[in-house]
């Protein structure tokens, strides 16, 4: 029986990884990183970390069965050991110390597809028949509501399908009233009174975020800064931008809001089963 300190360190680290994931779930920050649809994955990972940590605890005081082969730390030169543990600690330290940052206009500019992705194209047609994490009936209902309601409200849970429909067939929705919220994004090609009201669409995690948004027109645009969150109501009009026909919101009323609790929107899948 020997106390194996490198095993002890590994146990502490496994526990810390598990604790980190649990904290994220407990305080709700996990939505700033990963699509809530995949919460089960990171929860399972937390459980696995706890489980492996328990196993590791037994290895600390176990007899030295550890046969030294590839990459054994105690045979490696010292700086290498320090670096490898430091690297493993790095996400834990930044994860605990730094607050998660909601992606904003700067990232949207880097991605460069805010308006291009929404430009109408025949290829988009199939999209309307698609998806939802709701079941088919709920989804049909939501779409029916979209057709009938006096104001199309792009709520978080239907943002993506509504958005796709409007940008696919802007002609059909011309003149309709729309209510939505999003953050302000401006790029060089915009006129003074234009800005894009944008949301990030997250498939799996924020690394695969794509921005979707409507071009909007309002008088006060020059005085509104990038990244301001707005709730607006406006009418859909047709316009041309970068040679493509696309919908544009003529803003009737707007107000500044705080960043919503759920800043991102997610693609909607229809449950097949």
């Amino acid at each position: 029986m020997t106390f194996q300190s490198s095993h002890a360190l590994k146990a502490v680290m496994l526990a810390t990884f598990a604790y980190f994931l649990v904290t994220l779930h407990a305080n709700g920050d996990i939505v700033k990183f990963v699509n809530p649809k995949y919460n089960l994955l990171s929860q399972s990972a937390a459980c696995l970390f706890f489980f492996l940590c328990a196993i590791q605890v037994f290895r600390i005081i176990g007899k030295s069965t550890h046969v030294c082969h590839h990459g054994c730390n105690h045979r490696s030169p010292r700086p290498k050991v320090i670096i490898s543990y430091a690297v493993l600690f790095f996400p834990l330290i930044t994860g605990f110390l730094l607050p998660p940052q909601t992606l904003g206009a700067a990232i949207a500019a880097k991605k460069g597809t805010v308006l291009t992705s929404s430009s109408s194209s025949a290829a988009h047609e199939g999209l309307q028949a698609a998806r939802k994490e709701m079941n088919q009936a709920e989804y049909d209902q939501a779409l029916e509501r979209m057709e009938k309601e006096p104001v199309i409200h792009l709520k978080e849970n239907v943002f993506e399908p509504y958005f796709t429909r409007i940008s696919t067939e802007p002609q059909k929705y011309e003149g309709r009233k729309v209510k939505m919220s999003g953050f302000v994004y401006k790029e060089d090609g915009f006129a003074d009174n234009q800005l894009a009201l944008t949301r990030f669409l997250i498939t799996h995690c924020v690394a695969d975020a794509g921005s979707i948004g409507f071009l909007t027109e309002l008088e006060d645009a020059p005085s509104i800064e990038q990244d301001t969150w707005l709730e607006v109501e406006g009418t859909i009009e047709l316009t041309h931008y970068d040679g493509a026909e696309m919908p544009m919101l003529k803003i009737v009323s707007w107000k500044e809001i705080d960043e919503p609790k759920e800043p991102y929107v997610y693609p909607v899948y229809i449950k097949i089963m």
């Binding site: 998660p100 904003g104 799996h204 995690c205 924020v206």
Partner: peptide, 27 residues
């Protein structure tokens, strides 16, 4: 942390999200 440039925080968020996304599969 508010004195840090937001891009650094954004990078950290993306970094952690890739890690959190990948770690179940690595396990």
């Amino acid at each position: 942390t508010s004195q840090m440039p937001p891009s650094l925080l954004e990078m950290n968020t993306i970094f952690l999200s890739i890690f959190i996304e990948a770690v179940p599969f690595v396990l």
